[in-house]
């Protein structure tokens, strides 16, 4: 899967949780939770949705590698078969 396709899916899922935040204005290198104003429940819902869409496990131990928008894309890119 192309990185741009991955990003589009990520955008879709983030939008579902934080429809009021424009992706163009966020800092892609900052904490995702701060940038999109999401709490731990929202974050878990995001992980659940991404895990279902990409059929990957996304263990909690890997959360530090998903903490920014760009890191998340890189993580997904690396783990999708």
């Amino acid at each position: 899967m192309k990185t741009s396709e991955i990003e589009n899916i990520l955008k879709e899922e983030v939008y579902r949780i934080a429809p009021d935040i424009e992706i163009t204005i966020i800092d892609r290198e900052s904490d995702l939770r701060e940038e999109f104003d999401i709490d731990s429940m929202d974050f878990l819902n995001l992980i659940t949705a991404l895990s279902n869409r990409f059929h990957i496990e996304m263990p909690e131990a890997d959360y530090p590698h998903m903490m920014t928008y760009n890191k998340m894309i890189a993580y997904l890119d690396e783990h999708i078969a």
Partner: peptide, 12 residues
């Protein structure tokens, strides 16, 4: 949570 898929994970 180590052994759980995201759907079944716990939060504090």
């Amino acid at each position: 949570n180590e052994v759980r898929p995201p759907t079944d994970r716990l939060l504090l």
